[in-house]
């Protein structure tokens, strides 16, 4: 009676079940993720402005990008966020995790304390930090400088200081996550490795460079990729910490995502904004692939 069932091998039946369950996420990803991604490539070749029908204009948007000095500036800013943010945040996170791992007293509490900023909304945090950077008597940092007898700093009003000033809360916000991941990585290293090293007479430095760091490689790969993507997509902090949310002064803090937002949703120049998005997508893709290749090793 069930002969039709027996016509399939057990493996085929399992495959049918597996695909049955996978169908939902597969369809979801195709419709919500992949289709719009490919649609973007098409839109980036048009002059669509939301109101009128799009005209196909070949690579005109890309040529315009190439000749747009603001685009090159925001691209430079974005890379500054990436090149400063990733190494600094990873270094701080590693140092904190390394020492936190050795602390037994109130370990859980301290870890929670470091994790807290990660749970806080970026917008609220950005506004608090924005106040920190104000001149005397509002700004905490300038109050401290003044109390110690140093000159006040312009921070967010300076074209050179604004970018690092915005980067600081972004690093701080991600630190908790990175520390927790580093701690997990440190805990995963068998204690007998360290004991063997202690007996063999290795110093702290040799243990760190020959055992701990190489064995943390998978953790580092993961964190470098995740935090690079994060810094390349930085937006909330800049939008909320610069006056009018314009990435000023003089575009000196504007990252590519903010430029895309302005082009698309202020100027309604969707075709041009999409072209920028495609460029960001390609940058993310290439950087991620390079990092995976470089850090994965053997």
């Amino acid at each position: 009676m069930f002969a039709w069932r027996d016509r399939l091998t057990v493996g085929q039946k399992l495959a049918i079940w597996a695909w049955g369950f996978l169908a939902v996420p597969v369809v979801f990803y195709c419709v919500i993720r992949f289709y719009p991604t490919f649609e973007s490539f098409a839109i980036s070749l048009t002059d669509w402005d939301v109101l009128s029908d799009p005209n196909f204009i070949w690579f005109e948007n890309y040529v315009r990008l190439w000749n747009d000095p603001v685009f090159w500036q925001v691209l430079g800013n974005t890379f500054m966020y990436l090149l400063l943010g990733t190494p600094i945040s990873l270094l701080i996170a590693f140092v904190v995790a390394y020492y936190l791992d050795q602390v037994r007293f109130m370990h859980g509490f301290m870890r929670a304390l470091y994790f807290l900023p990660f749970l806080t909304t970026a917008v609220a945090m950005a506004w608090v930090w924005r106040w920190f950077y104000q001149p005397v008597p509002i700004g905490t940092f300038n109050n401290i400088l003044a109390t110690l007898g140093f000159a006040q700093q312009p921070f967010l009003r300076s074209t050179t200081q604004a970018l690092p000033a915005i980067l600081a809360p972004a690093i701080w916000a991600g630190l908790g996550f990175q520390i927790v991941i580093f701690l997990a990585g440190l805990r995963a290293i068998p204690s007998s490795y360290y004991e063997a090293a202690r007996i063999d007479g290795a110093g702290k430095w040799q243990i760190l460079t020959e055992i701990t760091i190489p064995l943390l490689r998978p953790t580092v790969v993961f964190l470098v990729v995740i935090s690079s993507i994060g810094f390349l997509r930085i937006f909330d902090q800049v939008f909320n910490m610069t006056p009018q949310g314009d990435g000023g002064p003089l575009n000196s803090t504007k990252p590519i995502v903010l430029y895309i937002y302005e082009t698309g949703f202020d100027a309604f120049n969707m075709g041009y904004a999409t072209a920028q998005t495609v460029i960001l997508f390609l940058i993310l893709l290439i950087i991620t692939l390079i990092q995976l290749r470089l850090l994965r090793g053997r």
Partner: peptide
Amino acid sequence: IAFGLRAA
């Protein structure tokens, strides 16, 4: 094998 020797 050389780990301890490097340490020394």
